[in-house]
Amino acid sequence: MLLNRRDFLKAAGGGVACVSLSRMGFDLGPVKAYAADLKMDGAKEVISVCPFCSVSCHIIAHVKDGKLVNTEGDPDYPINQGALCAKGAAMLSMTRNPHRAMKPMYRAPHSDKWEEKSWDWALNRIADLVKESRDKNFVEKNDKGQRVNRLEKVFALGTSHMSNEECSLTHQAMRALGVVHMDHQARI
């Protein structure tokens, strides 16, 4: 039998389900002698979307005891049908990557090193900087005397890595501040 897509989660309204091995694939018949445990046995399956090109291949994340144990293509998603390219296939090591930035880091003016900071400290400091920059540099009116409400000296760049919900909030926040220098990956 040529193996194809498996029939899984069809009725699920959510993207989360428990692995049901009887439904996980094709009945090749049990091979008792060599049947080892699979790392995703008993794992929860969560549907995600590959964070790279805009094909938006679906990925199933296997989560066991709160930890990511495996990722592979979602065979039901009609576009990638379980397939993934090199980047998509590397989602496990990409997510579990120990090189990730894990704490807010701060580099003081003229310093030669990063320092760890708390979120509270970092966000308060940034909020102060934004307010200070805005209060000092806000352009209420242009040369013609027209009301323009611009904060030209503060910019926002990025990102297509945001979800739609995050993009929407970011746009709203930046326009509220008066930011006009706003751009992201769509232009490069």
């Binding site: 694939g25 592979e72 293509g73």
Partner: peptide, 16 residues
């Protein structure tokens, strides 16, 4: 171990 549990080999599964 995958095949004996009815799953495709990882490389086959990934191939687009």
């Amino acid at each position: 171990e995958r095949v004996s549990r009815g799953l495709l080999p990882a490389c086959v599964k990934a191939c687009p």
